[in-house]
């Protein structure tokens, strides 16, 4: 089976003062359609850096990042924007919902950026029902609970049918009930053939992942035995 996204010896070095910090050190991995890759490791081990590299936001200093076999950092900036717009759905620990737009418009924004027009209400309504925020669509993010905000952020990432879902600690700030809803949805997306790459400390995700990657100081290592 062909890979959807792939890291080949990806290395990213940040310079902090006179010190070089290796956020990714020759990381290689292949993720195929329908796989749920869980990236875990201690804080500062380079998990978020890896997600950003996969999302076309951060070019590696060495190695390459491939999407459907093509190096995305060989593409023009415009092509990489299109890749993010059409093929990638990002979920962040801090939601990053646009504070002055309603939840409906926050979700619709992604479709608009994809260049879609016409009536999107039924698509958004359907997605909102999956995440149990259908009665919150005309509210602004500040009027929602933390769990509802994160569910809305996940709904926004999924709308428009991205091929790859990149989630950075999506359940890090939410309670058990909300975490369960998010977990169920992301798992369903993977089962439907989407590729999900998730950074998490949540053991439940580790247990249900099809593949996992343990990072320590930017290097791939075997996870410690708990």
């Amino acid at each position: 089976m062909n890979s959807v996204v792939e890291l080949r010896n990806a290395t990213k070095i940040y310079t902090k003062g006179s010190r070089d910090v290796r956020a990714a050190d020759h990381v290689s991995c292949i993720v195929q359609p329908g796989e749920l890759l869980v990236v875990h490791g201690p804080s500062g081990s380079g998990k978020s850096t890896l997600l950003l590299m996969l999302g076309g936001m951060l070019p590696p200093d060495e190695g390459s990042v491939l999407f459907n076999g093509r190096d995305i950092y060989q593409w023009s900036r415009a092509r990489r924007n299109r890749y993010r717009k059409e093929s990638v759905g990002f979920v962040f620990q801090r939601f990053f919902l646009v504070p002055y737009l309603t939840i409906f418009d926050n979700i619709r924004l992604r479709l608009i950026l994809q260049g879609r027009s016409g009536n999107m209400t039924s698509t958004i309504q359907e997605l909102a029902e999956r995440f149990r925020i259908e009665d919150r669509l005309d509210h602004r993010p500040g009027e929602l609970s933390v769990g509802e905000q994160q569910r809305a952020a996940v709904a926004r990432a999924l709308v428009g049918g991205p091929v790859v879902i990149l989630a950075d600690e999506p359940t890090g700030n939410v309670d058990e009930e909300n975490a369960q809803i998010i977990k169920t949805c992301l798992l369903a997306e993977a089962r439907n053939g989407r590729t999900v790459v998730m950074v998490t400390h949540n053991r439940q995700f580790l247990d249900m992942s099809t593949k996992h990657l343990y990072l320590m100081a930017g290097r791939m290592e075997d996870p410690p035995i708990l």
């Binding site: 999302g55 936001m57 415009a78 924007n81 299109r82 890749y83 993010r84 717009k85 059409e86 990638v88 990002f90 962040f92 801090r94 990053f96 919902l97 646009v98 504070p99 924004l109 992604r110 950026l113 994809q114």
Partner: peptide, 16 residues
């Protein structure tokens, strides 16, 4: 800045 970050992550361009 957060809004800018998420718009870029969703593929918006700087002119937008």
């Amino acid at each position: 800045r957060r809004e800018v970050g998420i718009l870029l992550a969703m593929g918006a361009r700087y002119p937008h």
